[in-house]
């Protein structure tokens, strides 16, 4: 069980893993333009991690996904989200300070129907990244914790 699954599954995982990561990061990155966002993209990335765990087993990925590192990253993601909320406190909590500022993600948004401007949205894309980081590491940490729990029960 812990040594992972069959050669077919592992080969497919090798192929799909990168695609899943790219798709997850795309969903996070375009969260302010297309359906999805930090939570959904983070869940997609975490599912790629879960795929690795299922295909290669806990032994196979030993050391590459560190439980403590994931937890730390999760907390950093949450703190970054809150920090972005505090950035606008001069006006109001969660005030979008970067919108229309001309700097990073501060591009102007044209009126009317358009294809979507990537360089717009102000703090929203950054918040998506913060939430994405929290969700991908959080769910990965939960999956690993459950795997450790299951392994303990097996050995008992």
């Amino acid at each position: 069980m812990n040594s992972g699954m069959s050669l077919i599954v592992r080969t497919v995982t090798r192929l799909v893993y990168g695609l899943a990561l790219v798709f997850g990061f795309y969903v996070i990155m375009h969260g302010h333009l297309t359906p999805g966002g930090g939570f959904q993209g983070g869940a997609v990335v975490a599912s790629a991690f879960a795929l690795l765990l299922v295909a290669f087993g806990a032994a196979g990925i030993k050391g590459r996904l560190n439980h403590h590192l994931l937890q730390t990253l999760e907390e950093i993601g949450a703190l970054a989200f809150l920090a972005l909320g505090f950035v606008g406190i001069g006006t109001a909590f969660f005030y979008n300070l970067l919108a229309n500022s001309g700097s990073l993600f501060g591009g102007p948004v044209p009126l009317g129907p358009n294809a979507g401007v990537f360089n717009a949205g102000g703090t929203l894309p950054l918040m998506n990244w913060a939430v994405g980081l929290k969700v991908m590491t959080g769910i990965a940490a939960i999956v690993i914790a459950m795997l450790i729990g299951a392994r303990k029960e097996e050995t008992e």
């Binding site: 937890q71 730390t72 907390e75 950093i76 703190l79 809150l82 909320g85 406190i89 109001a92 909590f93």
Partner: peptide
């Protein structure tokens, strides 16, 4: 003026910063 939101945001900040 900001007290209502800070009452929610500060404990939330604490909750995520405590493990670090």
């Amino acid at each position: 003026n900001h007290a209502p939101v800070l009452l929610i945001a500060i404990p939330l900040l604490g909750a995520f910063a405590v493990p670090l």
